[in-house]
Each structure stands twice: as C-alpha cells, then as structure tokens.
Design a protein around this nucleic acid. Structure first.
Lengths: 167, 167
DNA sequence: TTTTGATATTTTAGGCGTCGATATATTAAC
DNA sequence: GTTAATATATCGACGCCTAAAATATCAAAA
C-alpha cells in the first residue's frame, strides 16, 4: 500500500498494482487494430464482394510473383496451415488463384495468382490503399513516422518474449 | 513523373505512388497485434483452458460489477450482437456468468459474473497481466508512453475517417 | 533397404465472427 | 388506442480460425 517507493525495483510487486499501464496500452493497441480492420473488412465486402482473408492471401501472392508454398503463406499471414488450405480452396474455385505442383518437392504446392486474380487484385488494392490513407490521415507525418518506429520496437519486444519460451 | 513538387497538394496523385508508407504502417500495426494476440490466446488455452473471447467478455463484466446489457457488451467488445449471444451461452453453461432480466426493459438482459466467475477471472487476469507486461518489457518507459499517446491519435484519426461522429 | 524422423499439406471437430432475418418489446405519431 | 418506426436480442447460414490427427513425401541413418 506504499504510496510511492522512489527507488523501487520491487520484483515481488508484479501483481495488478503497477502494471496496469501496460494493460491499457495493449487494450488501446487492440482497439485501434479492430477499428481499422472492421472498417476495411466491411468495405471490401460492400464494394468488391470479397473477404479480408482472401484479399490478404492475394496480397501476399502479388508481392511474390514466383508464387508461394502453402506453408510460406501460413507463416506470412500468421495463421495456421489448415486455415490457408480453406482460403486457397475458395480462391481456386473462384479462378483467382492456382495450385501448381512443386517440381522440387512432391509434397508441396506453389500457389500463384491467375491473370484474372492479378487484374482483380490490382483494382481492389488501389481502393484499399486509399482507405488506409484516409484512416491514418488524422495523424501528421511526424506522428506516423514515430509510430512506425515504436511499432518496430514493440515487434522486437513481443517476438522476444513470445519466442524464447520453448524453442 | 515530377521528382518533387515542393508545394504539392496534388489531390490527383492519391494512387499507389506516395502512399505506400501508410500501408506499411498499417501492416506493421496488424503484425504486432496478431503476434501478441496469438500468444495470449494460446497461453490462455494452455494454462486455463479458456478461449480469448470468453476471457474478454468476463473482463468487461469485471469492470462493470452492476452488469452489462448484451448490446453494451457488443459495443465494448467491438463484435456483433449475434456473436455475444453465442459467447454468453457458453459462459452461462459453464456457470461463470448469468443472464438476469432487466427490470426496466423486458427486451433486455443484464449479464453479470457469478461468484465463481469472478473468482476464476481474477486468477486468470493476474497471469494475463503478467504476460502482457512481459510482451512489452523490451520497450522502455518513455517508448511505451509515446506509443500510448500515438495510438490515441490513431484512434481519433481512424474513428473520424470511419465515420463516427458523436457517441 | 528399411527404418526413423522431420516436413508439407489436408482433414476433422469445435468455437468465433459476420450478415441478414425473425420475434418481441419500446417509443413515437397520429 | 392503433399504427408505424425503432431498439434488443436470438437464430441460421456461412466463412474464418485453431488445435490435433491423418496422409504423404523427403532425407538421412542403421
């Protein structure tokens, strides 16, 4: 119940007393992401009739014209392999993506955008980028730059903490 | 192809040329959130056998001991009403939460934590907070403070752009 | 060669999440 | 008071997502 222990490195006090600021920081991060993600999700649906996960998968492929293996997609999208299987199935059925057999490894597929997929994606990506710009437009250049750097620090911090439990 | 138009407020150039930085900023934000959220999700599951959405709903109720209506929960959790119905059903079945009829409005329920729910939540919340502290521990105090303020600015910016006037 | 272990993907079961539709209750208009 | 518009919550269909198990291939050791 001490009001303020000036030189405190009281490692026993790691309960809910002095750490609430980190919690609030995390909740605010989450709120921002949800706000933006929900907005983008509904606009993609309303204006292009596509889901956010399908758009994201296509975005990964557009950045890698040589195609990507299912496992690569899984890593980059930060979702499980089974999930990628389902999303890919849908995109294949829509003709936006193809599964090609890997010449090097018969277990693996190489997923690529089709011509139609690429055309379709480019159109959506342009609108998508406009929306993102709008969403960040209330911050000035300097703020955006600082945020970008601080998020790099957060990524390092969280990767470290999450990564070295069991490896 | 002008290299640099110094006093440029060239509103026609809102394509994919100069706006990529905002996209990268958004993708980095998303990556951080996913990293942290996935970590917390799996630890909640592994150590307490609970899902993140159920934990989140209980967290809202713990902050509002008088209970919350379904619609309030929906707003605060930033998910749809139908979703809250399902999560609440599960928590009721586990005895962690109750639905009470609202005395003021016979359409509405007031959802509250049970005694067991409160006890159970407090235990999990303590661990949860420790994990969050760990995840942010690689940033110093000043960085966390700056990030907190910049995210407030982002929240304002995105809320504005997404079309939230008054609340 | 056969076994062993790791890797790549799919499958299955169950929970989360949206949207749109419905049932019911409240509020406002007339 | 009846009607109409709005608000609260649930349901059904469908897609996303995870964890765990199953299938198939590769690579290397016995």
């Amino acid at each position: 119940m001490s009001k303020k222990s000036a030189a405190a490195s009281d490692t026993e006090t790691r309960a809910t007393s002095e750490h609430a600021p980190d919690l609030r920081l995390w909740l605010r991060t989450l709120a921002c992401t949800n706000l933006i993600e929900n907005h983008i999700r509904s606009r993609l649906r309303a204006e292009f009739g596509i889901t956010l996960p399908r758009f994201d998968l296509m975005a990964q492929l557009e950045r890698s014209p040589q195609g990507l293996k299912m496992g690569e997609l899984s890593k980059r999208m930060m979702v499980t392999g089974g999930n990628v299987t389902g999303i890919t199935d849908q995109l294949v059925a829509e003709g936006l993506v193809v599964r090609e057999d890997s010449p090097k490894d018969r277990r693996a597929y190489i997923v690529k955008l089709t011509g139609e997929g690429r055309r379709s994606f480019r159109k959506m990506a342009e609108a998508h980028e406009t929306w993102v710009v709008e969403l960040f437009a209330g911050m000035d250049e300097k703020q955006r730059g600082q945020l970008y750097e601080l998020l790099a620090a957060l990524k390092r911090s969280a990767s470290m903490a999450a990564g070295k439990k069991l490896e």
